[in-house]
Amino acid sequence: MTDPIDLLLWGAAPYVSLAVLAGGLVWRYRHDRFGWTSRSTQLYESRLLRVGSPLFHLGLLLVAGGHVLGLAVPKALTELAGVDEHTYHLVSLGMGTVAGLLTAAGLAVLLYRRLTVPRVRRATTLDDRLVYPVLGLVLLLGLTATIVDNGIGGGYDYRETVAPWLRHLFLLDPRPELMAGVPLDFRLHVLLAMVLFALVPFSRLVHAFSAPVHYLFRPYLVYRRRAPEVLGTRAQPRGWAP
């Protein structure tokens, strides 16, 4: 019998987080496409941004790639490919540390910029104030888990616990008991990540879902026709519709 708290945190919460993420994205797309933007502040300040922003974003892409490799690919598969546990551990530790540090350095520059440049500071909204601490904490906890548990602590094989737990979530066969013995920093990292995912649709982080990859495949010039129904129709005066 699983501890009810474990069941809640590792069996129910992930689905709530994903549901909020998916539902929130659909809601935002249908009702607030105008608000769907990266809300860049480059117009205010460029010098720090040109250091921090590429560092943070490219680092984050590496981090995301590392998570896919570490969590989605089963241990059996890498061993089948001839990568033993020790090699995998070294690669994951090395790459993870580098990517994490790059991202953290980028975020540090960006946060410094946001706090110290008056124009940028003034343009900070409520959702920014909520998202930046969560994002920073998730990043720091992940970095701690990598460096402290995986490096200094000699190595923790999350591919025996966290990875199968996550895969089973997607197979709609939750196994909360897998997370019971995982070190605290890993568990906090995962928990806060769930919070972060739930915040994505309601913050500027949505811009990640509009990465303009199709730009590479479209012709330079875009022509569009005027929407025929829009032409010249007057807006209805305000009134009650039955």
Partner: peptide, 30 residues
């Protein structure tokens, strides 16, 4: 400008050639 827009939110209108920004399509890539 249309050629530079990664989102494809800027367009030239077929009927009269006016170049416009689709405010719902723009993602602020600048």
């Amino acid at each position: 400008c249309v050629a530079s827009c990664p989102s494809g939110a800027m367009y030239k209108r077929v009927e009269d050639g006016i170049v416009l920004v689709d405010q719902d399509g723009c993602r602020g890539w600048r």
